[in-house]
Design a protein around this nucleic acid. Structure first.
Lengths: 216, 216
DNA sequence: AGCTACATACCAACTGGTCGGTATGGATAA
DNA sequence: TTATCCATACCGACCAGTTGGTATGTAGCT
């Protein structure tokens, strides 16, 4: 009966993450997690010195998974096509696929949840968030920069801003998706983000209208 | 000493909203609000039967102000130009202006904050959020539809999705803006949203290149 | 007087966290 | 093989502090 500690720890973390994504951190009591898992206080505080240690552990795991997703998906896109522009577009498309599949099971993002209760968490935890979000900015940004060098954009753009744009769309779409209870909204907005990239890259040809200078 | 009730009520609401935007609702204790205002429990519960009544009152006020901003800014844009396409673009531009001016003083949005602690609020409060967000979808959506009819888009788009896109960008940009502590990020992302609209409207001319995988 | 606008004192419930104890099972040694 | 030992895993009663909320009083205005 009293055996696999790692499994229990994971059980606590899974239950806690679900509750936190639904109700926020402050509104998720330790007892609520215990009720969900059938465990007791003893078990909880055996695995986590404090509730905030749980918070940090959750963020460590979440950020790690997230960065893994980022890199592996980027690599998949690189394997699927050699054109840097297409790699970026395929990358976003793959994310859409993944969103569509996992669907409602992942109804939120810990980064945003933690951000809205910022003062509850220590600096270390905030650094984890920053680091993970920076990974998207920099690694997707680098790939976008490659694409921009490979095919000059139709309007002047900044690679890191464009990379941030993806995270922005995802986070913002989650908010609306929850408020409206329309899961598909996230996919729609991701499609628009991809549209934007396509037009910036001139995947769809763009010509200036008025000053009539940038003709191809 | 015991004089203007309405002012005291507003004082409480202002202090509470600031704290809630910074720390979330659950993590904002009534006592913290009282400490901020120099009032006492008697005063608080004289004006609000419960903490949740404060939450609802705050959302009523916030949504009302928000819808007013939406409508008045839309009207300003309509007064500034007659071209529906330009009206949409000017509308977004005006929002950028307002964001830039109010700047850091408004570091968040109650809709998102409440969404991340959803179960704490009653249905009535959630309906207020939904109604306000729907106003953006429908009223900005209607204006965008006008623009689309006036100038057929270069790629097939849905007016309401595009309208949602603005809210999505704002909410998402707030999240990143907080995490990175980069207030200007919101403006950058709004600029990209406007870029997208410009290209969709063919404000910048767009021509299909290849078989063009732009789905609807 | 009576109503509004507060202050003060207080309470029951819940919070995160502690602590002494028990159960389990693997390593060790007889 | 089996008795001993001990670390790990877990239990559940308990604690102090904080929470939202109430009851009662009072000062000022009309």
């Amino acid at each position: 009966m009293a055996r696999d500690g790692a499994a229990t720890r994971a059980l606590i973390m899974d239950a806690a993450q679900k509750l936190i994504l639904r109700h926020g951190f402050a509104a998720t009591s330790v007892e609520a997690v215990l009720e969900q898992t059938g465990l007791t206080k003893g078990a909880f505080f055996h695995h986590f010195p404090s509730k905030n240690d749980l918070a940090r552990a959750l963020m460590e795991r979440f950020a790690e998974q997230d960065e893994t997703t980022l890199r592996s998906t980027l690599e998949r896109a690189e394997r699927l096509t050699k054109d840097p522009v297409q790699q970026v577009l395929v990358f976003v498309g793959l994310l859409e696929e993944m969103m569509e599949q996992s669907g409602n099971s992942n109804p939120g993002c810990l980064y945003a949840t933690y951000s809205y209760e910022a003062q509850l968490f220590d600096d270390e935890t905030h650094e984890l968030i920053k680091k993970a979000l920076l990974a998207w900015r920099e690694e997707l940004g680098a790939k976008i920069r490659q694409a921009l060098e490979h095919r000059p954009p139709r309007i002047p753009v900044n690679a890191e801003e464009l990379a941030d744009g993806l995270t922005v769309v995802i986070e913002g779409a989650y908010v609306l998706s929850r408020a409206f209870k329309e899961p598909k909204l996230v996919l729609d907005q991701l499609r628009h983000y991809r549209n934007y990239l396509e037009m910036v890259f001139g995947e769809v040809r763009v010509e200036m209208d008025v000053p009539a200078s940038v003709s191809s």
